[in-house]
Amino acid sequence: MAILCAGEILFDFISKSPNKGLGESGLFEKRPGGSPFNVAVGLAKLGADVSFLTKIAQDQFGKFLFEYLKENGVNTDYSFRAEGLKTCLAFAAVDAQGKAEYEFYRDDAADTRLELKDIANLQYEKFNIFHFGSIALIDEPTSSTLTRLFDNFISRGLLTSFDPNVRKSLLKNRESYNNLVKSIIKKVDILKMSDDDLFYITEKKDVEEAIRTLSIKEGSILFVTLGSEGSLVYKDGIIERVPGYKVKVVETVGCGDSFMAGILYKLRDLSKEDFYSISVEELVDYANFANKCAAVVATKQGAANAMPTLSEVRQFEFL
């Protein structure tokens, strides 16, 4: 069965000036990115049937991104092209303390303008899983459109997946944002969060304590990525840690999205009944595969560009 990913599509401009921060960086490298977009490309490169739902500007950046989706095997039937709007640009750098800095330029960005009328003819029966999240939830009307779509998938008995991928610099109201994320968490089947996202949403500083404050419905699954420490699986009160893989790290942009793609790839053919009966042991195996996907990405430069194929994951030699 196919997967529908939805959300932002943009260009990342990654600083090539080590530890200079955004203000002092003099050179940036342009790469296609955006969390749900990276996941869609990652799924396609692994061999999954995946479509991407968004609005894409008809500026030169947007035209390239539309072709990039097609060239990488992502179905674009629901990637609507929009005139008179812009492509979102995101700048990223690491400062002298090793902290990542982000600045987003989203004025009149096409991916913020997804409307309910755009999804009126969506063929739900084509899809087994709906995945969404990230900064697409911040701007209207896209935020309301995606949350309505989320509810529509739930009402049809289909699986749903969510990664908040928090970008604090874009949030105007932390309380309203956290309330929205928590309302989604209560209903979603597959939840993925980084440890930083988890701490931000729960305001706790211990991973296991933070998990137990979340209102995760019975049978749903949570994956928490822990950077070089690997990941964690949670289901129905059971927590299992899954060690990461040692690699020579080039950068970590896109690792979390590759992890998410790995998880969805493993779950893509499950019925809802099979999904809810899946064991924690099986989920640990899936997280182990996703850890491998993320580790491969860490050895490369790029976000969508770095997403691995299935053969690459299988043949990669870890340290």
Rank of each mutant, 00 (worst) to 15 (best):
L4S: 11
C5R: 08
C5Q: 08
I9H: 02
I9A: 09
I9N: 12
L10I: 11
F11K: 05
D12V: 03
S15F: 09
K16L: 14
L22T: 12
S25T: 07
S25E: 08
P32H: 01
S35N: 08
F37G: 11
F37R: 01
G42E: 02
A48C: 04
S51T: 01
Q58P: 04
F61G: 03
Y68P: 14
E71N: 14
E71R: 10
E71T: 02
V74S: 14
N75R: 10
N75Y: 05
Y78R: 02
F80V: 11
E83W: 04
L85T: 13
T87M: 04
T87A: 03
Q97H: 14
G98D: 05
K99W: 00
K99H: 12
Y102K: 04
Y102G: 06
E103G: 02
D108Q: 05
L114Y: 08
K117G: 06
D118V: 09
D118K: 08
Q123A: 14
E125Y: 00
F127W: 01
F132Y: 10
G133R: 09
I135G: 08
I135A: 10
L137V: 06
I138H: 05
T147I: 13
R148C: 11
N152A: 13
I154H: 06
S155D: 15
F162M: 06
D163S: 11
N165P: 15
N165A: 12
N165G: 12
N165V: 13
L170N: 13
L171Y: 05
K172A: 14
N173W: 09
N173Q: 09
R174C: 04
R174I: 12
S176M: 09
N179T: 12
L180R: 09
K182D: 05
I184S: 08
K186Q: 14
K187W: 04
K187D: 12
V188S: 06
V188M: 05
K192A: 03
D196H: 13
D196R: 12
Y200N: 10
Y200C: 05
I201Q: 07
K204T: 00
E209L: 03
E209T: 13
I211A: 10
K217P: 07
L222W: 08
F223W: 08
F223L: 06
T225L: 05
T225A: 06
G230W: 07
S231I: 07
Y234E: 10
K235I: 04
I238W: 00
I238V: 14
P243S: 01
Y245V: 00
K246I: 00
K248M: 03
V249H: 03
E251Y: 01
V253M: 04
G254F: 03
D257I: 05
D257K: 07
F259P: 02
M260P: 05
A261Y: 06
G262C: 07
G262V: 09
L264C: 02
Y265F: 15
R268S: 11
E273H: 08
Y276N: 06
Y276R: 09
S277I: 00
S277H: 13
E282K: 15
Y286H: 12
Y286N: 04
F289C: 03
A290H: 08
N291Q: 09
A295H: 10
A295I: 01
V296W: 06
A298R: 09
A298P: 10
A298Y: 03
A304G: 02
A304V: 01
N305W: 01
M307H: 05
P308V: 12
L310C: 02
L310F: 13
E312D: 01
R314Q: 15
R314E: 14
L319T: 07
